[in-house]
């Protein structure tokens, strides 16, 4: 028996918005410690890794490890039926071929349940090595979304260049060039407004706008985003999900032959 009840059901709705453009389907690996999801996008350029810890749920029970293959467009249709203040429960029997979503309104006057068929997915699981990154940049998530959106008008790629002075995002194309420089903030009233750069060595890497823009669909999950870079390895774009976990996107750089 698997059962996970999330009082802040809106978080699950936001998680779905954050992955559904990138992935058509994904396996939810449910275990005693919580729920994990790892999946590559269709073109195998990026990887999504979602972690929801059991402690973040109001009620969590997982008697046996369970892999639930879900069609995300179907799951998204179902989660759209939940109101933002609904409590959401996911449940499944051991070895079941369906998962049930239960939505409870805060005062319990409306309770809906939706049963969805599971699919068998034969997805590759990638090993992500523990890495010490050369540059770790924290910035407001809305600022990052704005930068990706603005620079996408100029070209298909964004160059992210991190030095001890700060971080520079650049794009170039037919209409011209664009550069956005963010300096590390000295003092801020709110921590979520801060730009922080932790640099061991300077790094410059180039990434496809298309994917960066899809990652920014996670912006409503967290006021801050963390970018981690090292030379010639994938960028990590991480959004914390309150006290429950995180979503990380890994994006392979564009590199010269």
């Amino acid at each position: 028996m698997f059962e996970a009840r999330l009082v802040q059901g809106a978080l699950l709705k936001k998680v779905m918005e954050a992955i559904k453009e990138l992935l058509n389907e994904a396996s939810f690996d449910c275990a005693h410690s919580g729920i994990l999801l790892q999946a590559m996008d269709n073109s195998h350029v990026s990887l999504v890794s979602l972690n929801l810890r059991r402690e973040g749920f109001d009620k969590y029970r997982c008697d046996r490890n369970l892999v639930m293959g879900m069609n995300l467009s179907s799951m998204s249709k179902i989660l759209k039926c939940a109101s933002n203040d609904d409590i959401i429960t996911m449940k499944a029997q051991d070895n079941a071929d369906t998962v049930t979503f239960v939505f409870e309104s805060p005062k319990q006057e409306k309770i809906s349940d939706y049963e969805m068929k599971l699919t068998n997915l034969d997805q590759d699981h990638l090993g992500i090595p523990e890495t010490e990154y050369s540059c770790v940049i924290k910035l407001p998530s809305a600022e990052f979304a704005r930068i990706c959106r603005d620079l996408s008008q100029f070209g298909e790629s964004i160059v992210i260049s991190c030095t001890k002075e700060g971080v520079k995002f650049s794009a170039a194309g037919d209409i011209g060039t664009a550069n956005i420089k963010l300096a590390q903030t000295a003092t801020v009233d709110k921590e979520e407004d801060a730009v922080m750069v932790d640099m061991q060595e300077p790094v410059t890497l180039t990434f496809a706008c298309k994917y960066l823009n899809m990652f920014t669909k996670a912006t409503p999950l967290s006021p801050q985003v963390c970018l981690s870079m090292s030379p010639d390895v994938p960028l990590v774009v991480e959004y914390k999900i309150e006290d429950i976990g995180h979503i990380r996107y890994y994006l392979a750089p564009r590199i010269g032959d």
Binding site: M40, S43, H44, V45, S46, L47, D124, H125, L126, G127, I128, P129, S157, T206, A208, V233, P234, Y250, L251, A252, P253, R254, I255, G256, D257
Partner: peptide, 14 residues
């Protein structure tokens, strides 16, 4: 000219 690399070039399939 830059080429887009696939993610499994960096993270091998387990």
């Amino acid at each position: 000219r830059l080429k887009q690399k696939g993610i499994h070039r960096f993270f091998p399939v387990q």
